[in-house]
């Protein structure tokens, strides 16, 4: 089957539709997933196609959306629970961290939790401090859970399908400003990508940029600019924050000896901190410079356009960070 150029939104819809057609046990539950068609229109038309049994509108109850999905998964279904945006996942933190991620371990393997929690992340839309978080790193802190953050339509489809087929709980995080991005995506219903594999999105020899999600976009733009100045960046898209696959980062670093980590997280205790620590641990002999981090500023995001953008990472900030290193 051929590839087709589609948006991330379409890729997500296709992944959901194909997996629901493939497996009766897969169903969707969440706020506005049915009649409304999904707040981001990812599940538009699904309620007509699959019916109310499999496309279930819920009350505005994040704790029970996540918790009931855990119970349903333990009891043999394969729920896809939607939390409208990751900002609201804070209300479901206990169900995600204590139950989705832990019931298997705590009861010594008696239970399996084949669950996907889909949600959107990110700032940059003037939604103010409460609605602009990009906190996926918080969830990646906990063993028992996988955290995937696709940056392209290709990855969105392959990673989501993999998440639905996997028997472990996955927090699947989509960036709300990237849903219109296009890429060629396989139409083959058995196209799935492996869980926990990073991907080199651009080859280069001068610096390693480690990123994921929206960071991929800033980094790719930055790389084009840098290339005009004769600096070739290699870009490793982590895709998964857990399992975290740093092998391609280490391979790249052996060649470039320099690294910049780009992410929308807040600057303290973020992915950059983890990557820097691991590079220092594993690649000490290859280091020519300290690892640099580009992230959001250490403040709540404001409403007003100019200062919101000021607080977020950008391609320009990535360019500047790289130029300090090479």
């Amino acid at each position: 089957m051929a590839d087709k150029v589609i948006t991330i939104r379409e890729a997500l819809s296709a992944a959901l539709r194909e997996e629901m057609q493939r497996d009766e046990r897969v169903f969707i539950m969440g706020e506005e997933v049915g009649v409304w068609g999904g707040t981001y229109a990812v599940t538009r038309g699904f309620i007509d196609e699959f019916g109310e049994k499999r496309v279930r509108d819920t009350p505005i109850s994040e704790m029970v959306i996540a918790g009931a999905a855990v119970g349903a998964a333990m009891a043999g279904l394969r729920p896809i629970a939607e939390i409208m945006t990751i900002n609201f996942a804070f209300l479901a933190l206990d169900a995600i961290v204590n139950h989705a991620a832990k019931v298997r371990y705590m009861f010594n393997g008696q239970f399996t939790v084949p669950l996907v929690i889909r949600t959107t992340t990110g700032g940059g839309k003037q939604l103010g401090a409460t609605h602009s978080h990009a906190p996926e790193v918080i969830f990646a802190h906990f063993p028992g859970l996988y955290v995937g953050v696709p940056g392209t339509a290709y990855d969105a489809k392959g990673m989501l399908k993999a998440s639905i087929r996997d028997d472990n709980p996955v927090l699947f995080v989509e960036h709300s400003t990237m849903l219109q991005r296009r890429a060629a995506v396989p139409e083959d219903p058995d196209f799935v990508l492996p869980i926990g594999k990073s991907d080199v999105k651009r080859r280069g020899k001068d610096v390693t940029i480690v990123t994921y999600g929206k960071g991929l976009e800033w980094s790719m733009t930055a790389a084009d600019t840098l290339s005009k100045d004769g600096i070739e960046a290699e870009i490793v898209d982590l895709r998964w924050l857990r399992p975290l696959d740093l092998e391609p980062v280490f391979e790249s670093f052996k060649k470039t000896n320099r690294c910049v980590v780009v992410e929308e997280s807040l600057p303290m205790f973020n992915i950059g901190a983890e990557v820097a620590a691991q590079i220092q641990q594993e690649m000490f002999d290859y280091m020519d410079a300290p690892v640099k981090r580009v992230s959001a500023m250490d403040i709540p995001l404001p409403y007003s356009r100019e200062i919101e953008l000021m607080a977020l990472p950008s391609a320009e900030k990535v360019v500047a960070a790289v130029k300090e290193l090479v």
Partner: peptide
Amino acid sequence: IVGGHLPLAAGIALAAKY
């Protein structure tokens, strides 16, 4: 976790009904 199992109960019941 006080109350943490209550949504799980709802989910187990949903699976049975489903």
